[in-house]
Nucleic acid binder design. Structure first.
Length: 300
DNA sequence: TGCACGGGGATGAATAATTT
DNA sequence: AAATTATTCATCCCCGTGCA
């Protein structure tokens, strides 16, 4: 157990041992000579030894001071070496960033990944599967650097920091062979009288559409539940199901699969795609560098 | 959460003692 | 005579503690 000693006194000891002068030590530590002498007095009291004896105008260490110097001085050096601030992130060094994504957010990230590849060839982006909505532990211990997910409401997680990327609305897609395909707009009755495909990335039994319907005590019939956004539209071909999905992807896939896109006949909050990181790592130069590039990218 | 309190450290001035 | 260390005194500030 350490004796109750002020670390500043050990700094003084270390300096005095090397300079053998109270005045020089005072200069080194930015203290007045008086304060330095006071401090030496306190250290003498704490350690019960004279420590330094003035001989021929020089502060000569006592035998006890010589003994403790062997541990104290290397320890102080180790401390000051260990207390160095963060080294800034070097983007020309080979570095891997691990980002957890859903299939859909991985699709969204495509331009960002290309941006990084073009500007920072040494950076390796590893996208891995987002196993839970907010993988707090993995973000904290470094298995993940970021998670890219989407949500409809403000997060309440205390330990997670989030960066907004973009916001987008939902559309309802149907096959162009569907009986409703000729209509300009969907009514709520249309919506409720047909079967649906639910996208549940985390094996939920309800989606945002179901919770919005529940607010007016209504429900829809879910015929198929799928874990991924990207494959879901393929299930609309040759079927009479409805699929409510992110507009950004829907408009791209609609032409390829001959789909018709309509506005859902109820209020569905927009989803927001966000980048998540753990608060304990928010000052990690690696992560702050990435966030800076990320912010530059999204303002393009 | 805000507050007063006290301990302890730092400061500057003044001074004594010692060395060079 | 100049430089250096040690000491005393008054004062300021910070921080931990206990209390409301």
């Amino acid at each position: 157990m350490l004796p109750n000693i002020d670390l500043n006194l050990l700094k003084l000891f270390s300096s005095l041992y090397q300079t053998a002068s109270v005045s020089k030590t005072a200069q080194e530590l930015n203290l007045s000579q008086s304060a330095c002498s006071h401090a030496l007095t306190r250290l003498r009291q704490r350690l019960g030894d004279e420590l330094f004896i003035r001989i021929d105008n020089e502060m000569v260490p006592s035998i006890f001071a010589q003994q403790i110097a062997q541990s104290v001085i290397p320890a102080m050096q180790q401390l000051s070496a260990g207390l160095k601030p963060f080294e800034p992130f070097n983007s020309s060094k080979t570095t891997r960033f691990t980002i957890a994504t859903t299939d859909y957010t991985a699709w969204c990230l495509k331009p960002l990944v290309h941006y990084f590849n073009a500007h920072y060839p040494q950076i390796n982006l590893q996208l891995v599967s987002l196993e839970q909505r907010t993988p707090t532990e993995a973000l904290q211990d470094g298995r993940l650097d970021f998670a890219c997910g989407f949500t409809h409401h403000q997060e309440k997680n205390e330990s997670i920091l989030e960066h907004d990327w973009f916001e987008d609305k939902y559309v309802t897609a149907i096959s162009n062979q569907h009986p409703l395909a000729k209509q300009k707009a969907l009514t709520l009755d249309d919506f409720l009288s047909h079967t649906h495909i639910l996208i549940a990335p985390w094996n939920e039994t309800k989606g945002v559409v179901d919770s919005m319907l529940a607010k007016t005590k209504k429900s829809r019939k879910v015929a198929i539940t799928l874990p991924h956004v990207l494959i879901a539209p393929y299930y609309l071909q040759h079927s009479n199901h409805l699929l409510t999905l992110p507009q950004a992807y829907a408009v791209q896939i609609a032409e390829l699969l001959d789909l018709v896109l309509l506005d859902p006949p109820l209020n569905i909050p927009n989803y927001r795609v966000k980048l998540y990181l753990h608060k304990t790592r928010q000052n990690d130069p690696k992560l702050t560098w990435f966030v800076k590039q990320f912010n530059q990218f999204i303002t393009l």
